[in-house]
Simulated assay, not measured.
Amino acid sequence: MVKYYKTDNKLIHEEKEIGNGVWVQMINPSVSEGQYVAEQLNLDIEDVLAALDEEESSRIELQDGYTLILVDIPTIEIRHEKESYTTIPLGIILTADEIVTICTEDTPVLHTFIQNRVREFSTKKKLRFVYQILYRTAALYQSDLRVIDKMRTEIEERVGNDTREEDLIALHELESTLVYFATSLRANGVVLDRLTRYKRLEQYPEDKELLGDVIVENQQAFEMTSIYRDIVQGTRELMSSVLDNRLNTVMKTLTSVTLIMAVPTVISGIYGMNVDVKWMPLAKTTHGFSIIIFLTIVICVILILILRKKKML
């Protein structure tokens, strides 16, 4: 899908075709749509469709007549029938008169621009537009990181009471997500560093200030990712230790019960042997059976007291 937008008098409206000062928004475009935009703006089709490859890394490429900027943005995907976070590429192409964004999804990073909720937004000020996109990207990372930390907190509250193996799997997925975030934020930081030396398009003084804010927000998101990853790793290790300790407790209890039950089993087994009655103690004694049962109970009670003293029960 390809749409064209332009701002006039600080209001954004949709255009019918490409023109000067137009923002070309491409959402999961087909090859034919990519070829059309590439021909209209004299772009390389591979650069136009580069953001559709999920393995593309963040970078800046200076081409003849235009600049390609690729950054990673956070998004939601369904994994194991649950919502999880990952990152996808967002392509930005700057020409002399137009700006093109390419993404496989209709990302919330760009929603605020279409809804005209960004101050001082203009499709004609292309470099500022890029910085505003990157600022929204860093803010979205931080928002998703807070959600991830809330999910971790909910799992951590169940430690020791209702700890389940599913929680370990969920923590592992959160840790994987944070690894993706850290990698993407680090790569985005390299792109931002290159943008500080970008001289191809005109930069206004406020643009440089905005770029500084973007760098700060991106660095803050990266630090949040590192902190949350360490916390998730610690929570996962704690939960794993709790599950191991719970298993050890169960095994210890079962061993103690087996040891106690072995006493009457051994005694009854001995008296059940096919030998002469005269060799069996208490065989001819009055109330011999009751005495044997009483002695068995006494031995079991003594064994229970010993096990409790040693905290085996």
Score class of each variant (00 low, 15 high):
Y4E: 05
Y5P: 01
L11I: 12
L11K: 15
K16H: 12
G19Y: 09
S32T: 09
N42K: 15
A51L: 01
L52Y: 08
D53Q: 05
Q63D: 12
L70W: 02
I73D: 06
E81V: 11
E81I: 08
Y85L: 13
I88M: 11
P89F: 00
I93Q: 05
I102W: 03
D106I: 06
V109F: 08
L110R: 08
H111K: 12
R119Q: 14
S122H: 03
K124W: 07
K124N: 00
V130I: 10
V130C: 05
T137K: 08
L145C: 01
R146L: 14
D149E: 15
K150D: 06
R158G: 14
V159S: 14
L168E: 06
A170C: 06
A170I: 06
H172Q: 14
E173G: 09
L174G: 05
E175V: 14
S176T: 14
S176E: 14
T177V: 06
V179Q: 09
Y180S: 09
A182T: 12
A182C: 09
A187V: 01
Y198H: 11
K199Y: 12
Q203M: 13
D207C: 13
D207W: 10
D207L: 14
E209S: 13
L210S: 06
G212D: 08
D213V: 08
V214E: 02
I215P: 01
V216D: 00
N218S: 15
Q219Y: 01
Q219K: 10
T225I: 07
I227N: 09
Q233Y: 09
Q233L: 11
M239Q: 11
S240L: 15
V250D: 07
V257Y: 03
P264Y: 01
I267P: 05
G269Q: 06
W279M: 10
M280Y: 00
P281S: 04
L282F: 05
T286R: 15
T286A: 14
C300E: 03
C300S: 02
L303V: 01
K310T: 09
M312L: 14
M312R: 07
